[in-house]
């Protein structure tokens, strides 16, 4: 029996084949599954990002819904405005889903995102996170992980700071719903989209979508990397309601070191063991914190203790 996190999916497609995504595109898989759930219930707002291209350059159209493009930093506000405008013209039902990359979420979009979250705009904000500006050829974003290469953090000066924790920022806004998801767990992803659709107010989905072109990974490993990110707990699957009720959706059974995830990506090729250790330590600390918030036992607490000892 295939894992329940695989789920069962509608046969109907709202992403059309022939789209412009690169071979092995993670964001394409994510959007395909998001739209299987949202179907004709939502319109889509896209700020500058890979999806500006994937959704079709004129005259092509790859999505079977209304898609509105908007300037890079403006997605959250534009989305809120569309929702408000729809209500004003007598359509309270159509949902608005913003589809922003990590740049449009973590970096240039953060102010508008925070504003919309604080106002509890009635929209779903989806960040498909490929951890750098991939559409323009792999420039660093604040979602780029520690130790990763990009064209603006070239070796040996690879990114020296950890990835911004956008979920904590969102949780701090006490939004009705915020969740992480990734393409290797499409059932989990779908159910989170469904849960988001069922709620009102500001809903945030942080979806890790590997980018083989940017990450320097084999194009067939997109889903595998997504899975390894979860299994190594670099990207745990969890959700939080109202900034207080935390739930971890997938508890890895076995300890898998982060290197299993890092090793097949060229962007991490300059990492030294001490840097890998630093990443692992970060994972252990954040996992401990997450387990604590979710009220579950950390079955890997020995690993955390190991790092604490190592630091002495």
């Amino acid at each position: 029996m295939i894992n329940t996190l695989m789920g069962s999916f509608s046969q109907e497609e709202f992403l059309l084949s022939g789209h412009n995504a690169c071979p092995g595109c993670g964001p394409a898989i994510a959007v395909r599954h998001i739209m299987k759930v949202t179907a004709s219930r939502a319109v889509i707002v896209i700020p500058a990002s890979c999806w500006s291209i994937i959704s079709g350059v004129v005259p092509l159209r790859a999505l079977e819904t209304v898609v509105m493009h908007c300037p890079f930093p403006s997605a959250a506000a534009t989305g809120g405005g569309i929702k408000k405008g729809l209500e004003a013209v007598g359509d309270p039902h159509t949902q608005v889903l913003v589809l922003a990359g990590d740049g449009g979420t973590f970096d240039i979009g953060l102010q508008g995102l925070s504003g919309a979250a604080e106002r509890n705009e009635d929209i779903i904000f989806v960040c498909y996170d490929n951890e750098a500006y991939m559409n323009t050829g792999m420039q660093k974003s604040s979602a780029s992980p520690y130790g990763s290469y990009s064209t603006t953090t070239p070796a040996p000066k690879v990114k020296g700071n950890p990835k911004k924790d956008i979920m904590k920022i969102m949780a701090a806004h006490q939004v009705p719903y915020a969740a992480t998801a990734t393409i290797a767990f499409p059932g989990d992803l779908s159910s989170k989209v469904e849960r988001a659709l069922e709620r009102k107010g500001f809903r945030f989905l942080h979806i890790l979508t590997p980018c083989p072109q940017g990450w320097g990974s084999p194009i067939d490993k997109t889903v595998e990397l997504s899975r390894l990110a979860v299994l190594t707990r670099l990207f745990p699957l969890w959700e939080v309601e109202g900034g207080v009720n935390y739930r971890i959706n997938f508890l890895p059974e076995e300890y898998l070191p982060v290197n299993e995830y890092l090793k097949s990506q060229k962007r991490f090729s300059s990492l030294e063991q001490s840097q890998v250790d630093f990443i692992q330590e970060n994972v252990e600390r954040q996992w401990e914190e997450l387990c604590h918030k979710a009220g579950v036992a950390n079955r890997f607490s020995a690993a955390l203790a190991g790092h604490k000892n190592g630091r002495k």
Binding site: L16, S17, G18, H19, N20, P23, G56, V58, P59, L60, R61, A62
Partner: peptide, 16 residues
Amino acid sequence: YLETVPTPVNKTGLWR
């Protein structure tokens, strides 16, 4: 608001 053409006209299999 230009008329759009669904992407399946785009035979991306040629990239393979």
